[in-house]
């Protein structure tokens, strides 16, 4: 019997650590993927890509093709001078209205 609570609390047994615990944890970590610090912007981009993949249902080649087509379109616009030679009949005003830009001059400058 104890008169003092602190005195009684001090009699509490110290837990015995298993000899294998450290080795077990180290081995479990080795089985998991190594932790590599990834820059924040890469994490954001990866997260965005993962979310996008979850949302979109088309196969990957379709997106690759769309990106390629956009690239070629951009390259053609970039390589051609005003007027837009490869799209006969399309004026900068048409492009401006298509892009919801009121000032055709801006589109003209851009093209």
């Amino acid at each position: 019997m104890f008169d003092d609570l602190d005195q009684l609390l001090k009699t509490r047994k110290k837990p015995e650590v298993s000899a294998h615990l450290s080795a077990q944890i180290i081995a479990a970590a080795a089985r998991e993927r190594p932790a590599v610090k990834i820059p924040a912007f890469v994490q954001v981009a990866k997260g965005f890509w993962t979310d996008m993949q979850a949302q979109l249902t088309l196969p990957r080649p379709a997106y690759a093709f769309a990106v390629l087509a956009l690239f070629i379109f951009g390259a053609l616009i970039g390589s051609s001078a005003d007027p837009i030679g490869f799209l006969p009949g399309v004026t900068t005003d048409d492009l401006a209205s298509f892009m919801l830009i009121e000032d055709g001059f801006v589109v003209g400058e851009w093209v």
């Binding site: 450290s22 944890i25 180290i26 190594p34 932790a35 590599v36």
Partner: peptide, 14 residues
């Protein structure tokens, strides 16, 4: 550990 050093992790565990 932040750069994936398993040895450093093992030392912390030990």
């Amino acid at each position: 550990v932040c750069s994936g050093d398993h040895q450093a992790f093992a030392e912390l565990v030990e």
